[in-house]
Design a protein around this nucleic acid. Structure first.
Ligand SMILES: [Mn+2]
Ligand SMILES: [Mn+2]
Ligand SMILES: [Zn+2]
Ligand SMILES: [Zn+2]
Lengths: 141, 141
DNA sequence: ATATCATATTAGACATAATCTAAATTTTTC
DNA sequence: GAAAAATTTAGATTATGTCTAATATGATAT
């Protein structure tokens, strides 16, 4: 894939481009899904260089802190990660737990009255329900 | 507090009213916040009857499954719980991690095109930023 | 009131996810 | 090239949550 874009992303977050960190970022950018830290660890270690578990966690934390990667908390399961490419919302399946991207659209902000002195950085919209795979078979019974 | 309302809630969820389960539900209904399972366990055990850790988790799972309680997943921390009273959204502070209720308002659903065959059960809106306590001191400098 | 039985509770073992530690390595700066 | 800073690492440790299987109990029927 586009190694230059990946390196540029890391530079933008003021993060050194180490082989291990590059591998994590590259995996997230090339991969549409929402892998867990364990899945990322396994994936980047299928190819060299070998990266330790601690380093995978460290790099994910750094990438999230730099704003390049988003962490998605899911109830009862390990956190999931995705590269912050295009803005999007998320759909989480009640049954299989899969996290899917949904087309982004602007969300109305709360009234300043209900907001008080809080400062909103972002509005995140999460849809829950049944994904295509888990929903009722179309046109059945 | 209103013991009858609590019992009615449990009955509505087809859950037996045991002292341990009642204590969990009562704590969540009387308490505005968003406690963790560990906090609930500690709180209900400050008064008798003593409830085991396993039972606290079991009852929280049952209450969530029955739709009486909501579980809020927060990145990097233990799950939090609140009784589903009035509908509301949530605000999560970037700095202190506190979860606060926000006035509810209807959220526009995704277009049926982007939704595909998915079935949406609910739309959850989460605001992130700085809470009143963590924001810049008002009228400072 | 008593019997019945599905449901609930329990202690503690177990599992999983994530963080911490401190030594070694790599990269950057001077 | 030496010194400083950032990164990696294995393995220990912590945090959170689940499971097991023996025991107890609430709800219902009699
Ligand atoms: Mn995503
Ligand atoms: Mn709430
Ligand atoms: Zn699904
Ligand atoms: Zn705060």
């Amino acid at each position: 894939m586009d190694a230059v874009a990946i390196k540029r992303s890391l530079a933008g977050g003021r993060l050194r481009c180490t082989p291990q960190r590059y591998a994590v970022m590259a995996f997230l950018m090339e991969h549409g899904g929402h892998p867990t830290a364990a899945e990322i660890f396994e994936a980047v270690n299928r190819v060299d260089p070998r990266s330790s578990r601690a380093t995978t966690y460290n790099n994910l934390r750094d990438l999230v802190k730099a704003g390049l990667v988003r962490e998605v908390a899911v109830e009862g399961r390990a956190a999931r990660f995705d590269a912050k490419g295009m803005r999007h919302h998320h759909f989480i399946c009640d049954r299989c737990g899969n996290v899917e991207d949904m087309e982004w659209y602007d969300v109305p902000r709360p009234t300043s009255g209900s907001l008080g002195r809080r400062i909103v950085r972002e509005c995140e919209l999460i849809f829950r329900g049944l994904c295509t795979k888990c929903g009722p078979r179309h046109a059945s019974r």
